[in-house]
Amino acid sequence: MTFEALYLQNQFILLDCISGSKAYNLALPSSDTDKKGVFILPQGELFGFGKPQQLNNESNDEVYFELRRFLELLLKNNPNILELLSTPEECVIYKHPLMELIRPEHFLSKLCLDTFAGYATSQIKKAKGLNKKINKAFELERKSVLDFCYVVYSNGSVSLKEWLQEQQFRQEECGLSKLQHFKDVYLLYHQSQLKQGETFYGIVAGPGSADVQLATVPKGIEPLAVMNFNKDAYSIYCREFREYWEWVRKRNEARYQSTLFHGKSYDAKNMMHTFRLLNMAEEIALYKEVRVSRDDRDFLLKIRSGEFEYEELIQMVEEKMEKIKVAYEHSQLPLKPDEQYAESLLIQLRESFYRL
């Protein structure tokens, strides 16, 4: 079974729904139409190797889950799957009568604290990461090891580059030896201290070097300076530099420009969905139901349009999380769904469908 084959054999589609922002009642004129659904494999394909758990189109905005996978994800209280099962009627394109046997209240549990609120927490981290990246842009050319080296100088320290300039030295003319018992601390020498025919090969081997290099230093030569290479800071810088430009390469440019437009330096769409998930998590604990269509639309769209400061939203999230934890402590929801019930339901649904 392939995505294309499923559309040609749509009798195997059990549920076909509009999902995403349109189902959430959060759509804007520019919003795309996403679809999710459930299908059941033809009986003959159950006995072969090719048993797809999920089918989707190339753009991944239409996704269908095989019945078994759908129930497995329900057992895990996966937010996307619970939302799909609770899709508002106006967003349901087709629903097979057998789907009436799968009801959200049979699967909702205290796992939703982790799946809904936990996923919301990951979105907060994502928003924080974007906030950091926007406010800490990196230059096109990566700094070198030399930018993280410092020389003890005049009751303090100066950058190695500054010291070399003052001494009118080039790094290629210098050599280092390790200073014992001091992490990343070196004794520094210059070519002018060597005898004719002897040479140093530089503090670093080249512009792309990831570390300093040691030299063979003749006995009796006094060091000109003591140098420290802040290797930890250099490693952090290299990681953040790499992550920043990877993010620039992969980011959704239209969404990024929208973030810059409202001037709040956070991913407003992600932050909106953070609050949507937190509110849904609380509703599950209080009312034992998944409310997909949002009656808090105005508040959520205000977040998306950048009407709140980043720090204000973070504080609201922290306060909300405390309320949600209390709600789940007092909730009568089971700790987790009944796996045996789900398995018997899967068998019942398959037998009923294949008899039709």
Rank of each mutant, 00 (worst) to 15 (best):
Leu349Thr: 02
Asn78Tyr: 04
Glu282Val: 00
Arg69Cys: 00
Glu62Asn: 06
Gly48Gln: 07
Leu188Trp: 06
Phe65Ala: 00
Tyr328Asp: 11
Tyr287Met: 03
Asp34Cys: 02
Leu313His: 03
Gln196Cys: 08
Pro218Ala: 05
Cys112Lys: 00
Pro223Trp: 06
Ala281Thr: 03
Asn25Pro: 14
Leu73Gly: 01
Met321Pro: 05
His330Trp: 06
Gly197Asp: 12
Gln43Ser: 11
Ala281Gln: 03
Glu89Pro: 06
Leu41Phe: 03
Gln315Met: 08
Cys238Ala: 15
Ser86Met: 02
Gln193Gly: 07
Lys110Phe: 02
Ser157Asp: 12
Gln257Trp: 12
Gly263Asp: 10
Lys195Asp: 11
Thr274Asp: 10
Asp211Gln: 13
Gln348Ala: 07
Tyr186His: 10
Met99Pro: 10
Leu188Val: 04
Pro29Thr: 11
Asp184Leu: 05
Asp232Phe: 07
Tyr186Gly: 08
Arg142Thr: 09
Phe169Met: 07
Ile221Phe: 04
Ala5Phe: 09
Glu312Phe: 04
Gly202Trp: 01
Leu194His: 06
Leu55Lys: 01
Ser331Arg: 01
Ser177Asp: 14
Asp232Gly: 12
Val212His: 09
Arg142Tyr: 05
Val217Thr: 08
Glu162Asn: 10
Asp296Pro: 15
Glu282His: 06
His190Lys: 10
Asp34Gln: 03
Tyr201Thr: 09
Asn155Phe: 15
Thr259Pro: 15
Leu346Gly: 10
Cys174Leu: 15
Leu108Thr: 02
Gly197Arg: 02
Asp267Cys: 09
Leu277Met: 10
Gln54Glu: 15
Lys288Gly: 06
Gly208Ser: 13
Tyr287Pro: 04
Tyr186Trp: 12
Lys22Met: 11
Leu187Pro: 05
Glu90Gln: 14
Lys35Glu: 13
Arg350Gly: 11
Lys320Thr: 10
Glu283Asn: 10
Tyr24His: 15
Met272Asn: 05
Asn270Leu: 05
Ile284Val: 07
Ile40Ser: 01
Ser177Val: 03
Lys250Asp: 14
Glu90Asn: 12
Leu26Cys: 08
Thr274Leu: 00
Gln171Glu: 15
Pro223Tyr: 15
Glu283Ser: 09
Tyr244Gln: 01
Glu240Ile: 05
Thr87Tyr: 03
Lys325Trp: 07
Asn270Ser: 09
Leu214Ile: 05
Leu74Ser: 06
Leu74Pro: 14
Ala233Thr: 07
Ile236Ser: 12
Asn80Leu: 00
Ile13Trp: 07
Asn155Asp: 14
Lys136Tyr: 07
Val204Asp: 12
